[in-house]
C-alpha cells in the first residue's frame, strides 16, 4: 500500500490560496468595528494625550508649544492635591462601604435563597444598575434634602428634632455613590460565593468548625476574588465621577472629576484638563495592571 510520494505541485498550491482569501474575510469582518473604535476612542485618546503636552489648545493661529507644565500642576497648584485627596477619600469610603454592605448581601443571596426566588432577587439587585444613574442620583436629593423624605420620616418619629439635611455634604456624595455602585459589588461577590462548593462547608462542619470559623476560614477567602474585582470596578469609576459630586455635594463636591469637567466646559483650559485626565487614567491603569497580576483572568473578564 505504499504509494508514490510525488504530488503534482500545482494542485498542492491551489489548496493554499484559501487561507489568503480567509485573511481578507477576517479583515473585512473586523475593520468596521475596530475602525469605528479607532475613530471614536483611540484617536481621541491619543489626541488628548498630545493636547496635555501643549501650552494652549491649538485653535486659530496659535503656535504649537510643547510643555510639561500641565503635568506639574499638582506642584504648581497645591489646592489640586487637596482635590485629588477628596476624590480618593470618596473612592475609599464608597468602595469600603460597598464591600461591607455588599459581601454579606451576596453571601445571603448565594446561600440563603434557592431556585426561582434566587433568580428574582438577583434580578432585583442588578436591575437598578441598568437604570439611568443620573435619575437615581437626582432621586436622592429628594430623600436627603431638608424637608425631604428622611427629614419627614425623622419628624414622624421625633417631632421635636431639629430639621435634618444631608444634601450638599460629603456623606450625601458617598451615599449616592454607594447606591450607584453597590450592585457591582454584590454581583462580583455573588459569582464567587455561588461557586463555593457545599461540600467544603460540610467538610469543615464535620471537622467541628463553628459558623464564625467557617466564615473566616472558608467563605471569606473564597469570596476574595469577587471582593477585589468588585472593589476595582467601583473605585475606578468613582474617582472619575463628576455628576454625583455636583448634584449631591454642591459646593463641597469639588473632586478630580468636577475639576476635569470644569477645564472643558467652564475654564476652557483643555491642555490642563487633558493632563489631569491622563494623570487619572494613569492611576486607573496602574490599578488594572496590579489587579491583573493578582487576579485570575476570569474575574477581570466578568
Amino acid at each position: 500500500m505504499q504509494l508514490e510520494a510525488n504530488v503534482p505541485r500545482a494542485e498542492a498550491s491551489s489548496s493554499r490560496q484559501i487561507p489568503a482569501r480567509r485573511r481578507w474575510t477576517t479583515a473585512a469582518l473586523l475593520a468596521p468595528a475596530y475602525g469605528w473604535l479607532t475613530l471614536a476612542v483611540f484617536l481621541p485618546l491619543s489626541a488628548m494625550l498630545f493636547f496635555s503636552f501643549l501650552k494652549a489648545a491649538p485653535f486659530g493661529a496659535r503656535p504649537l508649544q510643547l510643555t510639561l507644565d500641565n503635568y506639574l500642576a499638582f506642584i504648581r497648584r497645591p489646592y489640586l492635591v487637596g482635590v485629588a485627596w477628596t476624590s480618593i477619600e470618596i473612592g475609599l469610603w464608597t468602595t469600603g462601604l460597598s464591600a461591607l454592605i455588599g459581601l454579606p448581601a451576596a453571601i445571603a443571596l448565594a446561600r440563603a435563597t434557592r431556585g426561582r426566588s434566587q433568580q428574582v432577587l438577583f434580578l432585583l439587585v442588578v436591575l437598578p444598575f441598568w437604570t439611568n444613574g443620573l435619575v437615581r442620583v437626582f432621586s436622592w436629593t429628594m430623600v436627603l434634602r431638608e424637608g425631604g423624605v428622611l427629614d419627614y420620616a425623622l419628624h414622624l418619629v421625633a417631632p421635636t428634632a431639629p430639621p435634618v439635611s444631608l444634601l450638599y455634604s460629603f456623606p450625601a456624595i458617598v451615599i449616592g455613590l454607594v447606591h450607584a455602585y453597590l450592585p457591582y459589588m454584590i454581583l462580583t461577590c455573588y459569582l464567587s460565593a455561588a461557586a463555593i462548593d457545599e461540600a467544603h462547608i460540610e467538610a469543615a462542619r464535620s471537622l467541628g468548625a463553628r459558623t464564625p470559623v467557617i466564615f473566616a476560614k472558608i467563605v471569606l477567602p473564597l469570596c476574595l476574588p469577587g471582593l477585589i474585582s468588585g472593589s476595582i470596578l467601583i473605585f475606578v469609576p468613582v474617582i472619575g465621577s463628576f455628576m454625583e459630586p455636583r448634584i449631591l455635594g454642591g459646593r463641597v463636591g469639588v473632586t478630580m472629576g468636577t475639576m476635569i469637567e470644569d477645564q472643558f466646559v467652564q475654564a476652557f483650559n483643555w491642555p490642563l484638563g487633558a493632563a489631569l485626565a491622563f494623570t487619572m487614567l494613569g492611576v486607573v491603569l496602574v490599578i488594572f495592571a496590579v489587579s491583573s497580576r493578582v487576579l485570575p483572568a476570569r474575574v477581570i473578564a466578568q
Partner: peptide, 23 residues
C-alpha cells in the same frame, strides 16, 4: 482593545472625544 471603552472612566473618554471632534 475592547476593554478601554468599557473600563476607562466615561469622563475621560467623553472629554477626549470632545477635544478630538472639535479639533
Amino acid at each position: 482593545l475592547l476593554l478601554p471603552p468599557i473600563a476607562i472612566p466615561w469622563l475621560i473618554i467623553g472629554t477626549a472625544m470632545l477635544v478630538f471632534f472639535f479639533w
